[in-house]
């Protein structure tokens, strides 16, 4: 379980995270939902230790963040982090050299699954292809958890459909997935848990099937209630 407890973060005087607490379970798909600027990306960065926090605790399976923690979590950023002149296969070799959990066989499966061309240069990829490539790098690691920052943002329909398939496949089986989005229409039936964030605070966190069962409400219905009240 990824456990975030009372986390605070600010940039200068601006409070970005204001006492955030929630959990994301292993074997479940958790979606962090909020409008732009709500603190979603900051929260993912904080979990990955990519940005300092000013209070609170983050633990992965009971252990604080550290090198041991990072081997168990993969991060899929919303932009390319490798040099644009690199080719896809070179990036994969780089991963093999530097990431202990890299699984080349799985990465090659993913390459085929996404229809990526291994000799393509990263700088030449379309936005949709870049998103698939980033996902391949993240899912190609044998980690218990995977964090994805806006995997659908600004991407063409067919790439989005292909990426959505990941969530119903064995690629994520048994892992804990935590991703952010502000476009949930296509994703709402695929997530186990929704965590709504606004102004750096969690305003609601719920089991999606339970809300449909008990209240007959869609995730979007709950969002409307919460954000428009």
């Amino acid at each position: 379980m990824i456990k975030v407890e009372n986390v605070h973060k600010r940039y200068g005087l601006r409070k970005i995270l204001n006492g955030v607490s929630f959990t994301a379970e292993k074997g479940q798909i958790t979606c962090l939902i909020g409008i732009n600027g709500a603190g979603k990306s900051s929260l993912l960065h904080a979990i990955m230790g990519l940005t300092p926090i000013h209070g609170g605790h983050i633990a992965i399976d009971g252990q604080p963040l550290g090198t041991a923690g990072y081997e168990r979590i993969a991060f899929v950023p919303d932009h390319l982090t490798m040099p644009p002149g690199m080719r896809i296969n070179e990036a994969m070799r780089f991963m093999e050299d530097f990431y202990k959990g890299w699984n080349m066989a799985r990465a090659n499966d993913l390459l085929r699954f996404f229809g990526l061309e291994s000799t393509e240069r990263l700088g030449n990829m379309s936005k949709g292809t870049a998103a698939k490539f980033s996902l391949m790098l993240g899912l190609g690691q044998d980690t218990d958890y995977i964090l994805m920052d806006e995997p659908f943002s600004g991407i063409d329909l067919f790439s989005r459909e292909k990426i959505t398939e990941v969530f119903s496949s064995e690629l994520i089986e048994g892992r804990g997935v935590l991703f952010t989005t502000h476009e949930i229409a296509e994703m709402e039936r695929l997530m186990d848990k929704a965590v709504l964030i606004q102004d750096g605070k969690i305003i609601r966190s719920f089991d999606c099937e339970a809300v449909r069962y008990q209240e007959g409400k869609s995730v979007l219905d709950v969002m409307r209630e919460v954000y428009q009240s």
Partner: peptide, 17 residues
């Protein structure tokens, strides 16, 4: 369960349930 999840494009936990 796994095949059903992929075919119906649903979460594997939902197929299990």
């Amino acid at each position: 369960r796994r095949e059903l999840g992929a075919m119906m494009k649903i979460n594997p936990n939902t197929a299990q349930k």
